[in-house]
């Protein structure tokens, strides 16, 4: 067993499965399990959670036998700009209104790419906002306020 080494990817994956499985198992155990005849709200999830834990263990064991490949690059810049974009939209769409909120969201997302230049981004997102207002607000008639109360309207 001297060559035993773990694949980092599979180790993380297996631990994640086990962790999620435990979470659901503990939660389900707190519910009424019931019997096989009359299953309670916890029965089926408890079985599934147990299965997930088991699968997690198998993934880790299998990870010791396979050839490992590197994880590859992680899109840090993408994560940093893309994920906050919908959150920003959610935080501002009621207060600022649809138009400014969408503009900000697009602008934040645009900078996820290293190739985006500020001028291009402003033009692109400006056009995108105009297009969206025409299509979604006027043509499809979605009930969004175009400018919100934070802007004194």
């Amino acid at each position: 067993m001297k060559d035993l080494s773990f694949s980092l990817r599979d180790l993380i994956c297996g631990v994640l499965f086990i962790f999620i499985g435990l979470f659901f198992a503990i939660q389900a155990y707190g519910l009424e399990l019931g019997t096989a005849l009359r299953m309670g709200p916890g029965y089926f999830p408890f079985v599934l959670a147990g299965t997930l834990i088991l699968l997690g263990i198998i993934v880790i064991i299998q990870g010791t036998q396979l050839q490992h490949e590197p994880m590859g690059p992680i899109a840090w810049r993408g994560l940093l700009f893309i994920l906050p974009a919908p959150i920003l939209f959610g935080l501002t769409v009621r207060g600022l209104g649809f138009v400014p909120s969408l503009f900000l969201t697009g602008l934040v997302a645009a900078f996820a790419s290293t190739k985006m230049r500020p001028g291009t981004a402003l033009l692109l997102v400006g056009g995108l906002t105009l297009f969206s207002v025409i299509v979604f607000s006027y043509a499809l008639g979605l009930p969004f306020r175009r400018f919100g109360p934070w802007l004194g309207q």
Partner: peptide, 24 residues
């Protein structure tokens, strides 16, 4: 392309229930 995709995703998801929680 992708700024537009993000924008349309956000609008789309929000328009289902007008619920900002869905965006998070």
């Amino acid at each position: 392309l992708f700024p537009a995709i993000i924008a349309f995703c956000s609008i789309g998801v929000y328009s289902v229930n007008s619920n900002v929680f869905d965006l998070y």
